[in-house]
Design a protein around this nucleic acid. Structure first.
Length: 421
RNA sequence: GGAGAGGUGGCUGAGUGGUCGAAAGCGGCGGAUUGCUAAUCCGUUGUAGGGUAAUGCCCUACCCAGGGUUCGAAUCCCUGCCUCUCCGCCA
């Protein structure tokens, strides 16, 4: 959510920002509703002030036994006017809130301007792509031959877009989760376990609702939603709170499953576990002081990179173009992992700063020393997504005989196993 | 799921339909004082919206949420949500 005052004072900037993100929003209507709202407030509050004053007099007169019938009759009329205006105000305010909830966050000036991923900016590359003296296989072939990924069983159980890990495959995922959680908690992130099903209000807080409703699983009977990312429950842990400035920065890490309908992605990446309806992810969330939030973004990127560096996997860092940014994001870096079998980069982590957009939506504030309440900045980043990481490990660490070498840092978590064969 | 109780400011906890944004205590903040690791005393202490040049001032709203009754609601009525206790069910 953007501050209505900001929109009132800089309508052109907001319009331009939305345009850069390929988002539409009706700024003119918002300004009009905002003006209407304030006109009604001025009227109705003047009437309420009068009613309060006269009601006080009525009380006094009743006590001293003076007649008050005239005043009561008058106030009955004033009360009717107030009821009408209050109704108008509710309507206008509701309309305004809906329009406001559809205004995207402004892109940061350091996000490259462009309408789609073509304009993404390569920031840096790390590691070397592996070279093979044989033709590397894709993870779906490798995994099925090794008996560690079972797509057929997943289809039977749930339909397309799911996967089953077995044996060393399941073990590999658990090892990765432990490896990542250990790393992040060692670096000062607090581990949290959170609900995977959340309310509409919570989905609104981080900006998934209203825009992404069709991309998420909705449980109609209870009006609850399956989380598409741990960002949602973790950031909302502080919803509607005024926290102490001294509590900042807050660093959290959570492992959760993520559920995505992938409604608009029919036909894309249909093979393997690259685009699925459910996958696990380790997510990092930060709540920080506005003054150093962009430094916190760089730190968060480095934290996610550390996971890949530890695993010795080649990747590149990309600064997303404005048109590729999500609704709530001001700036996003993607980490893309090279995967030898599919011969392409896989987006494995997305690290974003939302400035105060999410905090304002969820009513999260902190109190300063001089007792002001301020919206902190929120950030999050995958650290990292398992359903992309496992394919990359299998493909990049594969051997000519179809076995897979276990990355060294994972061996302690795999009972010392050096290979999956 | 059934029965009962209840939801008041950072916390504890009062509150007869009118002078209650709300007693009191604790905590916090500011100050005074005492040489003894703290006590005592005084003051102050919520959030948001509107107006205004104004972090000041005025006004409005908020005692779980949403409706209603009334000139006037923390206080009465209805609905919902949540919490607690007991029973049932259950990993």
């Amino acid at each position: 959510m953007l501050d209505i005052k900001l929109i009132r004072e800089n309508p052109e900037a907001i319009r331009a920002g939305a345009e850069k993100k390929n988002e539409k929003c009706d700024i003119d209507l918002i300004l009009q509703l905002d003006e209407q709202r304030r006109v009604i407030i001025r009227k109705v509050e003047a009437l309420k002030a009068e009613r309060n004053r006269v009601s006080g007099e009525i009380a006094k007169n009743k006590k001293t036994g003076n007649p008050a019938e005239n005043a009561v009759a008058e106030m009955r009329e004033v009360g009717k006017k107030i009821a009408v205006l209050d109704g108008d105000l509710r309507d206008v305010d509701a309309q305004l809130q809906i329009k406001l909830s559809w205004v995207p966050n402004m892109p940061h000036e350091s996000a490259p301007v462009g309408k789609d991923e073509e304009s993404n900016e390569l920031v840096r590359e790390w590691g070397e792509k592996p070279s093979f003296d044989f033709t590397p296989q894709a993870h779906w072939d490798l995994g099925e031959k090794l008996g560690i990924i079972d797509f057929k069983a997943a289809r039977e159980v749930s339909g397309s877009g799911f996967y089953v890990l077995r044996g060393a495959g399941a073990r590999l995922q658990r090892a990765l989760i432990s490896y990542m959680l250990d790393m992040h908690t060692d670096d000062g992130y607090e581990e949290v376990i959170v609900p995977h099903i959340v309310s509409s209000e919570t989905m609104f807080g981080t900006g998934q609702l209203p825009k992404m409703a069709d991309d998420m699983y909705h449980i109609e009977s209870d009006d609850l939603w399956l989380i598409p990312t741990a960002e949602v429950p973790v950031t909302n842990l502080y919803k509607k709170q005024i926290i102490d400035e001294a509590q900042l920065p807050i660093h959290l890490v959570a492992h959760t499953p993520c559920f995505r309908r992938e409604a608009g992605a029919a036909g894309k990446d249909t093979r393997g576990m690259i685009r699925v309806h459910q996958f696990d992810k380790v997510e990092l969330v930060k709540i920080v002081h506005p003054e150093n939030s962009y430094a916190a973004l760089e730190d968060l990127v480095a934290q996610a990179e550390k996971v890949l560096q530890g695993l010795q996997l080649p990747y590149r860092v990309v600064n997303l173009a404005t048109g590729d940014l999500s609704f709530a994001s001001a700036k996003t870096y993607d980490l893309e992992l090279w995967s030898a079998g599919v011969d392409r980069y896989l987006e494995i982590s997305s690290i974003s700063i939302f400035e105060d957009f999410q905090a304002r939506r969820m009513g999260l504030r902190y109190r300063t020393a001089d007792k002001k309440t301020v919206f902190p900045h929120t950030l999050n980043g995958s650290g990292v997504a398992l359903a992309r990481l496992i394919p990359a490990i299998l493909e990049n660490y594969q051997n000519a005989d179809g076995s897979v070498t276990v990355p060294e840092v994972l061996r302690p978590y795999m009972k010392g196993a050096e290979r999956i064969a």
